[in-house]
Design a protein around this nucleic acid. Sequence first.
DNA 1: CAAAATACGTAACATAAGATACAGCGCTCC
DNA 2: GGAGCGCTGTATCTTATGTTACGTATTTTG
Lengths: 274, 274
Amino acid sequence: MVSSIAELISDRIGAMPAGERRAAQTLIANYPLTGLKTVAEFSAAAGVSSPTILRFVARLGFQNYPEFQSALQDELAAQLQSPASRTLNPGSAGGAASPMLEATLDNLRETFRHLTDKQLTDIAARLAERRGKTFLIGGRFTDPLARYMAAHLAIIQPDVYHLAGQESIWRDRLIDMGKRDVLVIFDIRRYQESLVRFAEKAHHRGVQIILFTDQWLSPIARFARHVIAGRTAVPSAWDSSAALFVVAETLIGAVTRQLEAAGAKRIRDLESLR
Amino acid sequence: MVSSIAELISDRIGAMPAGERRAAQTLIANYPLTGLKTVAEFSAAAGVSSPTILRFVARLGFQNYPEFQSALQDELAAQLQSPASRTLNPGSAGGAASPMLEATLDNLRETFRHLTDKQLTDIAARLAERRGKTFLIGGRFTDPLARYMAAHLAIIQPDVYHLAGQESIWRDRLIDMGKRDVLVIFDIRRYQESLVRFAEKAHHRGVQIILFTDQWLSPIARFARHVIAGRTAVPSAWDSSAALFVVAETLIGAVTRQLEAAGAKRIRDLESLR
DNA sequence: CAAAATACGTAACATAAGATACAGCGCTCC
DNA sequence: GGAGCGCTGTATCTTATGTTACGTATTTTG
């Protein structure tokens, strides 16, 4: 049995022509609001013509557009009256996504529970402090996180470098690093030998290391000035980096705030370069 | 300042004539649904005539009925998009990290609320279906997500390629793409012209496109077979990719499960190569 | 209690909404 | 490469929705 219209749509979205599928996707994207507007507005939002919307509605089994809207309204009414059911889509409540999502939400909460506000502020201050350069590097699966963070930091301040490619390449960059510089490392199980070696050498050169790792702590923690331990356990064969990702975003936010004045100017300058 | 229309009504309900007061009470009774219906339905529900409804709406300060409805819809949209962040994590109030984390948790819940289990399963099936190749690409800030997903997918199946570097480089890879292939694109505001062009060309070659975007839908949605719309709003100048990241991880998990048998063997083989 | 003012509903109107017919286009299949 | 089918958009039409004018009822006030 099909309980919600959203469900009905995703059931049939596969058997729809391109235009109607766009309509479906637009509706799902912010459900159910688009469906409560007029046909003209709906069609404009989806980028198709009005008849396509009507055909889409007809394909879902409704006689006409008002009938479709009534159905949406009834559904909304039911949802608004039992706020408990609002927490999650009933379709995905028992589905495959749920355990994964639940685990991730738990990881996030747990990670931030063990993370004091002071820690974040300190690290952000260290990153915002523009005395030296900032380098970022990650392991096999966490390198994208380093990239992501580098891309954002590079916007609000100069001298941000992501170390990529061959081990030999970033090893050679060591020569540019000194006491005033910061090295952000992402390393979760299984910890990478090459990263540990790199971290050790950087540490000996006096580089300040900020480590993103899992709750079991990479051996790099030994050399790190700041350690962020994220929860990574999810019901799967591999480890989740979601918690670390969110911490990274939070830090980016904190740094942005600290650099407000200088950062804003820099962003304006960047805009004008385009 | 009056934030919600409900508040506005209860402010002025004292100064209303009997008929309009009935209208007000009816609307409040199951707010805001009655207000989204037609004037005729509203008047029937309240047991008054249509002009009374219009006078009521006018008294609230709206020029006409559609304007009133738009206001209700906007309010509803705001309500639906930040579902009760206060219900969860009441303990962690206060810190600098908190607003960011709250927003991210909301984004996650909301993103998955709009994502049916069937959608995820379908997309995972498409990715697990080893008929052709899988290409992944992302925009300026989302490219790391493409990398991350590529790194994981590459472990459990062959023919997974991340498109990196110069636009000209990946444009040339188009020549390798055909009907049997899948292209995963990450694109959030501000949508990248180059990616749209690339998607269009790939689409014309018959490539199946899976799009990760924000709730406003990248123009690429037009060419996409599957669209995943994540919430990106956080209290900061930029957009958060955390929700998309978690969806990506969930998908990786789903694909892993579908490829269980074949994937396990592949992982063992990889291990023995080290 | 009477007179005035206000509120309300009926009915006619204008407008904008949804529905439909049709032609062009792209796609698929021979 | 050509014929057929199906999808999509433009333009037209129809419906019903929101709006307004006006007369009646009701309440309020002197």
